[in-house]
Design a protein around this nucleic acid. Sequence first.
DNA 1: TGGGGATGTATCGGCTCGATACATCGACGC
DNA 2: GCGTCGATGTATCGAGCCGATACATCCCCA
Lengths: 194, 194
Amino acid sequence: MAGGQGRVLELAVLGSLHETPLHGYELRKRLNALLGMFRAFSYGSLYPCLRSLLAQGLIAEEQPAPATMVGGRSKIVYKLTAEGKERLQELLTQAGPAAWEDESFGVHFAFFRHTEAEVRLRILEGRRSRLEERLDAVRTALARTRERLDSYTLELQRHGLESVEREVRWLNELIATERRASEGPERDTTSTDE
Amino acid sequence: MAGGQGRVLELAVLGSLHETPLHGYELRKRLNALLGMFRAFSYGSLYPCLRSLLAQGLIAEEQPAPATMVGGRSKIVYKLTAEGKERLQELLTQAGPAAWEDESFGVHFAFFRHTEAEVRLRILEGRRSRLEERLDAVRTALARTRERLDSYTLELQRHGLESVEREVRWLNELIATERRASEGPERDTTSTDE
DNA sequence: TGGGGATGTATCGGCTCGATACATCGACGC
DNA sequence: GCGTCGATGTATCGAGCCGATACATCCCCA
């Protein structure tokens, strides 16, 4: 399919353009400054994504004052369309595995300020469950292992477990903060559906 | 190219089969138990990789006692060939970006017991440089940012920086340990060529 | 006046994943 | 005996995404 970039880049681009119109190069810089610790987007996926979003009418080329155009160079500045804003809201509303897997969680989190409190909470909890599943899986596999492991393998396991445990603790704090914040303003404790 | 899986899976498979012959399903389970905290291999890449390694003569199907074959089922057990062992040694000797990037570092580390001390040290240092580059890039980008960031973005940055700083500290300890270990047994400090 | 580095758009090859399909095995109840 | 259910097991396909690369311009500085 020509341009169904489908996943995380779409949200990242739409979310960035929601702040201000940007061109590809600058967009990538911002994205990598924002998420550089977790992932790095490349042009090989960014430009096809932009083309796809353009074809879908979710973004549009902005034509600024002609004075800004230097020489014959075209600096293609993209901005969000009304449809794009709708689509962004739609993406921000979805709380599912696509939001809390490794590759996508960071991007969703980065745009939490545009996300409803309830969705935020569900994504954080989903992420936590995901990590706990992983901890369980590795721990049981480790316990089931008969052979003695060498010190490097052990050290790798230890470091991995510790890192994931740390992230779970971080999520716990965030979840607690979210709960406190939502219990204050609206004392609605009965609507804890699902 | 039909089957040039090229990168990290090759080492993971070869390294696992070096311990003991395995079939695909079990191979994947072991790999994911070993590296589950960092990455998860899928059949979609494992089986093509096995086919490719088979075609290259680096692994071979093991034909055990016919009694093991239940019914018409073929449980394809792979073992390392002599060429495969050579190739494994070759892969374990290489200390380059391919060894210390995110996706591959864990796999290389997991087989450090088969790696020469000098190569281990270079991979650990390369990994550390890589992470420090990333820290620098994000820190300068952060310092250069004019607009005020919302609390979620800030928290994401903080958490990301802290995680990477932690890994750098971990690497520092490992490097120190390696250095101590290599200075004790052989007091050869002159042969630090390249 | 010319070289180097940042800016800028774009593509191609190919690795890898998630989903899926299909088949068998052992255990369990009835 | 018979259905079924979960674990075991091999295999492929569509599609996303990255790394490398190419090419052009801008601007600074010597």
